[in-house]
């Protein structure tokens, strides 16, 4: 079965930034979150895939088709929401949707109306009069109304306030949870993706450091506290170590290895706590490549 998308050695160079080489693929029906700080290369990666940027080298495919901009059939299978929402500004939201509908044979006006209703999107307002939150909603309706097999969401909620963001995401996740589609979601706001993602990939400085199933991260990463007298022990695989007197706290990306070592060192009162995906991601992004590969 064809992958939802594939990047093979994709490189894109700017005067002050280099993306790649990127090698990444996504199975149909899987949700992959691409996580990284601002300027890491998330948007560039996704813009290369949708054709807004031309990669310097490498190959990209969507459901087996090269992302050739002059053979654009592959675009019928994707829905894209970027960080910038472009419309015919003097047209109403409804007119903009009608315009887009002409290009997608699978476009469902009924679905567009239902989505607009769920998002409480005022369809009769001109695009230029829509709030930022409503522009995001209009982009989401545009991207979903033709039931794409691959949804590419590039920080779709950037620039909107937390209240509207929560409102948008609640509806979006309800909609997405019911569909069987591949989703590639880039963000630097972890709570957005942690609810939805099956897998997470971490990117920084234009390189994807590593990729892992979300559950593996949650299972393996632990905050471990223990009591141990004497000099600071060298704890294997710990990425952070704090000490107050004889009480220690470490963060381990492989808690079983760390627990084994602590037992060998004679540590007492050992307690391990699960970490949230946000805490883990912060540790990974703070710690760099070494932490990622630990």
């Amino acid at each position: 079965m064809d992958k939802a998308f594939q990047y093979k050695d994709v490189v894109k160079t700017f005067p002050d930034f280099k993306l790649g080489p990127i090698n990444l693929e996504l199975e149909p029906g899987t949700v992959l979150g691409l996580v990284g700080p601002n300027g890491a290369g998330k948007t560039t990666s996704i813009q290369c895939l949708v054709g807004l940027l031309r990669a310097d080298s490498g190959e990209m495919r969507v459901f087996g088709c090269p992302n050739d901009l002059n053979k654009p059939e592959w675009k019928l299978d994707i829905g894209y929401v970027g960080d910038v929402h472009v419309f015919y500004e003097r047209w109403t939201a409804a007119r903009n949707l009608h315009f887009l509908s002409q290009f997608y044979p699978d476009w469902s006006h009924q679905k567009a109306s239902e989505l607009a209703e769920r998002f409480q999107l005022p369809l009769n307002k001109r695009a230029k009069d829509l709030s930022t939150g409503n522009r995001v909603k209009l982009s989401l309706v545009s991207a979903l109304a033709h039931s794409p097999k691959l949804l590419l969401l590039d920080e779709p909620t950037s620039g909107i306030d937390p209240v509207v963001r929560t409102e948008v995401l609640d509806v979006l996740f309800e909609v997405l949870e019911t569909g069987d589609r591949a989703i590639f979601y880039t963000t630097h706001i972890l709570p957005e993706i942690s609810r939805l993602a099956d897998e997470l990939a971490f990117i920084d400085d234009g390189q994807i450091w590593f990729r892992t199933p979300k559950e593996d991260l949650i299972d393996r990463w632990r905050r471990i506290s223990f009591r141990l007298a004497g000099a600071d022990p060298a704890i294997k695989s710990a990425v952070s170590h704090r000490r107050e007197g004889d009480n220690h706290q470490v963060i381990s990306p492989d808690f079983e290895v760390t627990l084994q070592q602590l037992k060998e060192l004679g540590a007492e009162n050992i307690q391990d706590m699960r970490m949230s995906i946000e805490e883990i991601a912060v540790q990974i992004l703070k710690g760099g490549k070494g932490v990622a590969s630990a």
Binding site: L52, P72, K75, E89
Partner: peptide
Amino acid sequence: IQKRDRLHVLLPVTLW
């Protein structure tokens, strides 16, 4: 100003 090239390029039509 409205970046409509960006909108058009995302549509399933050729650059030509």
